[in-house]
């Protein structure tokens, strides 16, 4: 564990608390893509199935359980508790176009050709692109509540912070995880446009609005 990874994980935790806070206080899931949230449930379950056969640390297991539980809870909030506030007509990104390529990538790029490893690789690729329905929705509406942009910024920062972690691990442990690194760079890259608007507008006190 190094500082970058720890800050990345904290940022990931923070993003979930911000999202929960947004839903609970506004009593609405407006502006949040259900499809992206559902993809995260798939990502976490696929990746953290190793809870059953691999023990890394208490920290690691606790975080895994938290991410699975919180992502399922968010789906519950969106689908049942605050269902009327979710507008499916603007959340239309076809997730098949993400799931199928990720499955193919996982079958080609994995560290061992068995069920758990292919599933792990699948979750890594899927996580990289799971934000696309959300970004697509943002693009369509052209604006977002501030709290939603804070959520996205924290979520984007999480994988971005893993990049210095991988550089650090390369120099200190000689370890490189090419699948995670490649997907992580793609994942961070998808946020660049968003980060640009976030830093130049939201953090300057303006509303998040995309140029028409």
């Amino acid at each position: 564990m190094n500082i970058f990874r720890f800050l990345g994980d904290l940022s990931h935790l923070a993003s979930i608390f911000i999202l929960l806070h947004k839903i609970q206080t506004t009593r609405s899931c407006r502006g949040i893509s259900f499809r992206t949230q559902a993809l995260y449930v798939v990502v976490f379950i696929a990746r953290y199935l190793d809870l059953f056969f691999r023990y890394v640390s208490l920290y690691n297991s606790a975080m895994k359980l938290f991410f699975i539980a919180s992502s399922c809870y968010i789906l519950y909030l969106m689908k049942i508790r605050y269902r009327p506030t979710h507008d499916p007509s603007i959340d239309t990104f076809r997730v098949e176009y993400l799931l199928a390529p990720c499955l193919i990538l996982a079958l080609i790029f994995n560290y061992k050709f068995n069920f758990a490893e292919v599933l792990w690789s699948f979750s890594i690729w899927l996580e990289a692109v799971a934000i696309l329905p959300q970004l697509f929705m943002l693009q369509r509406t052209g604006e977002a509540e501030n709290i939603t942009t804070h959520y996205l910024a924290a979520l984007g920062a999480y994988r971005a912070l893993y990049i210095p972690n991988w550089i650090y691990r390369y120099f200190t442990e000689g370890l490189v995880d090419p699948i995670a690194v490649t997907a992580g760079i793609v994942q961070t890259g998808l946020y660049l446009d968003f980060f640009y608007v976030y830093f130049t507008k939201v953090l300057q006190g303006q509303k998040f609005e995309l140029p028409a």
Partner: peptide, 10 residues
């Protein structure tokens, strides 16, 4: 175990 890091990251 094929992964270089042993999947010790989240």
């Amino acid at each position: 175990e094929g992964a270089p890091t042993g999947h010790d990251e989240l």
